[in-house]
Each structure stands twice: as structure tokens, then as C-alpha cells.
């Protein structure tokens, strides 16, 4: 298992770019579902970095963490989408800016 041909830094850099794109999605989009998808993107970016580190260290632990992140993400999506469906039922909208129930 020699040195990888592509420098690990490149993977991490790509991961950072994707992460920032995801973050911008969360901050800028008003559609709740899109925000959700952006969060998934961020998670994937983090996963990419983890896999890259695992490769670098020749250690399986990083990959296991990726695996767990995926599983938890699946759980999160299930609950999150259920929430969105419920919110849509009550308010007939998934525009995040019309929701400010936290205030009261």
C-alpha cells in the first residue's frame, strides 16, 4: 500500500468546497426540503474528508465512522422529512421564512 497517487490534501480541499456549498445552501435557500438536501451535502463532504484521512492513515476506523454517519443520516432524513410533511400539512407551505414558531 504505497503512497496514494492523488495527494490527500486535494480530497480534503474538495471536501471543504462541497461543505461550504452545502452551508450556503442552508443559509440561502428558503425551501425546507432544499435546506435538508444541503445538509446532506455537508454530511457527504465530511464523509469524503473522513474517507481520505482513513486512506492516509491506512486505518479502517475512519471508514467505519463514515458508515455510521450514513446510517445516522438515514435516520435523520426519515425524521426530518416526517417533520416537513407535518409542517406542510398544518401551514400549507414549506417556506422556512414563514415559520417562526420558536419565537413565542
Amino acid at each position: 500500500m504505497g503512497t496514494p497517487e492523488v495527494a490527500i490534501e486535494l480530497y480534503v480541499l474538495l471536501s471543504a468546497i462541497l461543505f461550504v456549498l452545502g452551508a450556503m445552501g442552508v443559509l440561502l435557500r428558503r425551501n425546507a426540503i432544499l435546506i435538508f438536501m444541503s445538509i446532506e451535502l455537508m454530511l457527504n463532504a465530511a464523509n469524503l474528508a473522513l474517507a481520505a484521512f482513513a486512506r492516509q492513515w491506512g486505518n479502517g476506523d475512519g471508514q467505519l465512522v463514515v458508515f455510521f454517519v450514513m446510517t445516522v443520516a438515514a435516520a435523520e432524513v426519515a425524521v426530518g422529512l416526517a417533520l416537513i410533511v407535518t409542517i406542510f400539512r398544518t401551514r400549507q407551505s414549506i417556506d422556512i421564512d414563514t415559520l417562526h414558531m420558536f419565537k413565542d
Binding site: V26, L27, R30, I35, I96, D97, L99, F102
Partner: peptide, 14 residues
């Protein structure tokens, strides 16, 4: 600061 809007909170988190 406590607006109740998710996006402002998200900005804070970011």
C-alpha cells in the same frame, strides 16, 4: 436576536 426564524439561527451557527 431571537427572531424565531430558522435561517437567522443557522447564520449564527455558521
Amino acid at each position: 436576536i431571537q427572531t424565531g426564524y430558522v435561517r437567522t439561527y443557522a447564520l449564527g451557527v455558521a
